[in-house]
């Protein structure tokens, strides 16, 4: 028997799942039974991280953006202090990947470089770590 906490809703039922039959007890609703069985059979997670932006430079040598667009909230031209040309691009796997592959996925994410322009949803790594998930951008990088 494996004990896990159900995360389907905020209640947090303490489930007991049989490792062979995947039978679930301790669940207050049917969704708990499904979660419990899946969590033991093939647990999956979405991985979110960042990737290095090519040519963003270090903070001391950051180029200044030539123009600004007040409506989109993009950078202002005058010697900015904040992370204007972002050094990192946020990314995620576009679907949950097997939990056991999280660190493998991270290793691939750490190797890849993003080159602007990039749009939300652009694929940076297809079929990451041999899964059916792709690593995609979660922010626009003009």
């Amino acid at each position: 028997m494996k004990e896990i906490i159900c995360i389907t809703c905020p209640k947090g039922c303490h489930l007991k799942v049989d490792e062979e039959t995947f039978a679930v007890t301790g669940n207050a609703c049917p969704r708990g039974a499904v979660y419990g069985a899946n969590e033991l059979r093939s647990p999956v997670r979405v991985v979110t991280s960042t990737v290095i932006v090519e040519d963003a430079g270090t903070s001391s040598a950051r180029p200044q953006t030539p123009d600004c667009d007040s409506r989109t909230g993009n950078a202002c031209p005058c010697k900015p202090a904040g992370a204007v040309l972002a050094r990192r691009l946020p990314v995620k796997t576009d679907r949950p990947i097997p939990k056991g592959k999280m660190f493998e996925v991270m290793a691939e994410i750490n190797r890849v470089r993003a080159t602007p322009p990039i749009k939300v949803g652009d694929v940076l790594i297809p079929h990451v770590a041999g899964t059916d998930g792709n690593v995609v951008a979660t922010k626009n990088l003009p």
Binding site: T58, S59, S60, R62, A81, G82, A83
Partner: peptide, 15 residues
């Protein structure tokens, strides 16, 4: 974090 960045930039060091 922003003060750190300004120090690095102005003194020519890595953050």
């Amino acid at each position: 974090p922003r003060v750190q960045e300004i120090i690095a930039r102005e003194l020519g060091m890595d953050q």
